[in-house]
Nucleic acid binder design. Structure first.
Lengths: 81, 81
DNA sequence: TGGGATTTGTTCGTATGTATC
DNA sequence: TGATACATACGAACAAATCCC
């Protein structure tokens, strides 16, 4: 298993599926601007995936400009600014 | 493309071509003993190849005793000892 | 002030699946 | 068939920034 939303057998890579779920939470406002995302270990636990895959998913959102990440602090929903 | 030195259409496999380039840097002293090589991601970027191919190239040099690799640290030009 | 815990960053190790030649 | 090459995924070790008591 890999969490409620993930299908490991899908043609869509797991990291993209995870990115989709997280993106949804941001665009729907579940996670407001400036809010800290769950830590990488927390996301590993929630989706039952490895850190590698978590980080790939976060990479996608970072590329899209939806989040910003700070070493030692965490990832945050990008403020409107 | 696959970097300045690599010809993907050559009869010589890409990983061997890369190994040749790296070996040259070592034997010519561009990279001195004990010096850390560029990381695998860096080599992926430089030669525009996958990690798999980078690692095959490094395998060749390791077999030849030209480098040693340490988990979590990197690969190093083998010291004279 | 110090030190441990938390968190992200970097790096190599291993395995699997797909595609191509 | 086997060798090559890429992408994905999980593990593990080490490093650095931050946080907290």
């Amino acid at each position: 298993m890999a969490g409620r939303w993930i299908d490991p057998d899908s043609a869509t890579p797991v990291y993209r599926q995870v990115a989709n779920v997280l993106r949804d939470r941001i665009t729907r406002g579940v996670w407001q601007p400036d809010r800290r995302l769950p830590s990488e270990p927390d996301l590993e636990a929630e989706f039952e995936i490895s850190r590698d895959t978590v980080r790939r998913a976060l990479d996608v959102l970072r590329q899209e400009g939806l989040i910003v990440t700070v070493k030692g602090r965490g990832s945050f929903v990008r403020p409107k600014s």
